[in-house]
């Protein structure tokens, strides 16, 4: 029987129905994008953690705020999130300190607001595209499943036209359809894992930043 044909990978995809092919193409695109973001986030979160740790070390080791401030200024664009929070707070504090008749509570409030604003911006940057990963993780299995269901529907519809139905009649259709599910899962699993991982990392960074802000406020308040 010619039904036992060779199910080469390429032929399976080429023989698939148009909708299944569309689903596969969409999933491939989504998967590529999500993996790109996974690696981007991996690099950026890793870098943020490293920079925060380094800055914290420097901050506690060297209590001279001016030197730290100069270093941050020098780093410019490549400065880490915590450094930026620090520089925003310190510059606001220095500006207000220069002004006469501003009481210290108002100075501290203003400094804290400046630091919080920078903190929000940094958190936003760190959290960017995490929602995309979450969406991919939750939706792409359904997209793949849709492609599979469609392919199996076609396979069974084709079966109705055959007098004597054997498994060999449906097998190629089902195999082709299941590739869509495999691709959906391939896109979804890493996206979910990465989302959970990065959400956790970003949360830890956020709490680190917050505690740094409190400590830095205390340091500033102790300044003469």
């Amino acid at each position: 029987m010619e039904l036992i044909q060779d199910l080469s990978f390429v032929r399976v995809i080429i023989n698939a129905s148009t909708l299944v092919q569309l689903v596969m193409a969409l999933l491939l695109l989504v998967s590529l994008l999500s993996w790109w973001y996974i690696f981007l986030k991996m690099f950026s979160v890793h870098r943020a953690i490293k920079q925060s740790a380094a800055f914290e070390d420097a901050f506690w080791a060297n209590s001279d705020l001016n030197i730290l401030f100069q270093n941050v200024r020098k780093a410019g664009e490549s400065a880490g999130s915590m450094e930026r929070i620090f520089s925003a707070g310190l510059s606001e504090y220095v500006k207000l300190k220069k002004k006469p008749n501003v009481d210290s509570a108002a100075v501290m409030d203003s400094t804290r607001r400046a630091m919080r604003a920078t903190y929000q911006r940094e958190m936003d940057a760190l959290e960017s595209h995490l929602s995309f990963l979450a969406t991919v993780g939750s939706v792409s299995p359904y997209i793949g499943l849709f492609g599979t269901v469609w392919g199996i529907m076609n396979a069974f519809r084709g079966l109705a036209n055959v007098g004597q139905a054997t498994l060999a009649h449906v097998a190629p259709g089902i195999a082709e359809a299941l590739i869509a599910t495999a691709m959906g899962l391939f896109a979804a699993i890493p996206a979910v894992v990465a989302y959970n991982r990065y959400a956790h990392d970003v949360e830890r960074l956020a709490s680190r930043f917050e505690s740094f802000m409190e400590e830095f406020s205390n340091v500033l308040q102790r300044q003469p």
Binding site: W35, F39, L40
Partner: peptide
């Protein structure tokens, strides 16, 4: 300061890695 602090180098290497992962999968 721009909110997105992705490096160009990161973008490229991330893209290359994504492609590698897909090539591996297929």
């Amino acid at each position: 300061m721009s909110t997105l602090s992705y490096y160009e180098g990161h973008k490229f290497s991330a893209g290359a890695l994504a492609l590698v992962v897909h090539a591996l999968f297929f």
